[in-house]
Amino acid sequence: MGDGIVVARGFADAPRTAVGALLLLILITGCGTGAGSGGSGGGRVSADGPSRSAEQSPPVEVRRDRGPVLRRFPQLGNITGVEWASAPLGSGSSRVPGPTDFRLSGVATLAEADVRRLQAEYHWVPGQASPAVLEVIAPKVPAGTSWQMSEGFTSAVTGDVYTATFGLDPATGVMVFDAVNPTVADGA
């Protein structure tokens, strides 16, 4: 009879032991599935640190709708055409909720009247090179242009709240823009 009690206690402890072993297994395997860990997360390690897998970051698409650009940069005036893209910065993490920084780059064609207005309202100086943009926008930036930059225009657009670069080619009416976390303008 004493053996029956020991056996019964062994069976009674079995569910707790199994649950504990299962939790330990989940903890151990959960630590090895993130990007760059060598687990099955699909990430890879580079000199810059872990990168996001294709499953985690959607491809950056080039868009042509004017609304989002004009809500952020109403100072551009009448845009007759635009190609732009937005991409999150950094790898982000589902473990740490919160806002994600993003970069917005594009090429806009301005109406002639707005090119003249911008030239009259702001002091423009020759730029060293075209503004850096997202990789998908780079082929859209016209080559061989004489980019003009204006600190006053940049400050008017950003309100000195976020960073951005704007390059204007007055001859073609093309404005190249690149901004990090551009906010929607008041009243837009």
Rank of each mutant, 00 (worst) to 15 (best):
V107F: 11
F102A: 08
P97H: 05
G67D: 06
L76E: 09
V69M: 07
R63I: 02
L110W: 04
V96C: 10
S105D: 08
T80E: 13
E112D: 11
P99T: 13
S94Y: 07
F73D: 05
T80W: 08
G81M: 08
L70S: 08
A108Q: 06
I79W: 04
S105M: 12
S105I: 07
P74S: 05
A87H: 02
R66A: 11
R66G: 03
V96P: 14
T80C: 12
T109Y: 13
S94T: 14
S91P: 14
S86W: 09
F102E: 09
S94A: 14
G90V: 00
G98E: 03
V82N: 05
S86I: 07
T100R: 15
N78W: 05
Q75K: 06
A85H: 02
A85G: 05
P74D: 01
G92H: 10
R63E: 00
R72K: 01
D101V: 13
W84G: 04
T80F: 08
V82M: 10
R64H: 12
A113C: 07
S86Y: 13
R64W: 08
A111V: 14
G67T: 11
N78A: 08
T100N: 10
S105E: 03
D65P: 00
L89E: 04
R71H: 14
L89N: 06
G90K: 01
R66L: 10
D65Q: 04
S105Q: 06
R72E: 01
A113D: 14
A108W: 13
E83K: 12
R63T: 04
S94I: 12
D65K: 01
V107W: 08
R103C: 12
P97C: 09
G98H: 11
S86D: 11
Q75S: 06
G90E: 02
